[in-house]
Design a protein around this nucleic acid. Sequence first.
DNA 1: AAATAAATTAATGTATACATTGACACATCC
DNA 2: GGATGTGTCAATGTATACATTAATTTATTT
Lengths: 223, 223
Amino acid sequence: MPMTNKLSRVNDAYSRIKEEIRTNRMPPGFQATEPEIALRLGMSRTPVREALIRLESEGLVELIPRRGARVLPINVNDMKEIYDILTSLEPDVAANVAAKKPTLAEMRPLEKAAKDMERALAREDLDAWADADDRFHLYMLDLNGNRRLREIVLALKFQVCRSRIVTLRLRDKPEKSNKEHREILDHIRKGDAEAARKAFRAHRQRAAEELIKLLKKFRITNL
Amino acid sequence: MPMTNKLSRVNDAYSRIKEEIRTNRMPPGFQATEPEIALRLGMSRTPVREALIRLESEGLVELIPRRGARVLPINVNDMKEIYDILTSLEPDVAANVAAKKPTLAEMRPLEKAAKDMERALAREDLDAWADADDRFHLYMLDLNGNRRLREIVLALKFQVCRSRIVTLRLRDKPEKSNKEHREILDHIRKGDAEAARKAFRAHRQRAAEELIKLLKKFRITNL
DNA sequence: AAATAAATTAATGTATACATTGACACATCC
DNA sequence: GGATGTGTCAATGTATACATTAATTTATTT
């Protein structure tokens, strides 16, 4: 029965599998064959296959010839790769945004996200903090306007998002992070691109270093 | 007859279509339905479809529900997006490479590429020049070692490669470019990361600006 | 002739069929 | 017992079938 639902089955399969990966219901290393997944999603192999191809090119799963799809784990080296790229990209995003001198209305979501981060930290709600942090970075990308850049950064962040679930609880309270966000905001408000870039770069590098130190300390090699 | 060739049909379809796009045999805006492409490639729709999905997620084609696959044109805004990202990434690559202090053996391919660029320019062979230029940038990515970064940069460059076929002949002789490459090499040899970054950034920005000016001058809006 | 309705066509999305072939279990030999 | 050969099973890669539906053409009405 083709086209039963408005949205295509491929899309359905794609977002459902992706969500299962994000929430660790399909944890790193998890393997399943196409028929298994198809059965689980209540559709035939074809749309599952096509969804898996998309997920593969996003770097979330690996398609192993006879063993099915495997959810890719992230190791320390992967983390380094990803944070290196983010360290190159995001500071320039902040600089561009600062150079554009956004209006107060455009700044509002950023300000709110920063405030939410502080409130969340005050009540020790780490999940809410992480959520606000994501929003901060996402709005920045939106303000910047470069669609391709946005997609690249989001894809990279999705790859590390699972690891954050773990590390969020292992690390110290992210007070430094909050302060850095405030600083970045200040620079953007003043339209000081160079300062915004520098501050963001320091922010990213510190966060990345801290994270990798943490993973090594706890001997977490795969996530 | 499944698995007739060693390599899978999907791979075959993928690389053949990609090559046709690169060489402008499937020019920007070109549209074809799945059965048409399948016929042309001498296989059934299934592998073609899967190849197209991969090409779509690389940003090379657009899959329009009832009209088939369309080869995406690149406009000035796309160019800006892409060069903005490259301007963020490649200077840091050069800086990382410089910081690593590569051995003479590791430097050799870079040196050779730079020399090839000069020789090619001396005999006015623009294609050979472009080829050597590509090699220079590619070796840099290899030395840097970040696989994800490499794939991202290559995918972005593929999107603009067709435009270069045109602009290569419209622009002045790339003498400045050659000089800049030499400079970057010097900084890397000395292990001066900051200088390498700065030089590469200037290189990219100048090249991008020049390109966009050219496109505007010749009223080229789509490629 | 213009506008609308009906019919045809064809492309997609999905399901299913099937040959090939790797993986694993079992049997055989030293 | 360990190593090697054989057979079965099942997953993949690919082809094909088919219902749905957008697009186009033809027919009909005003």
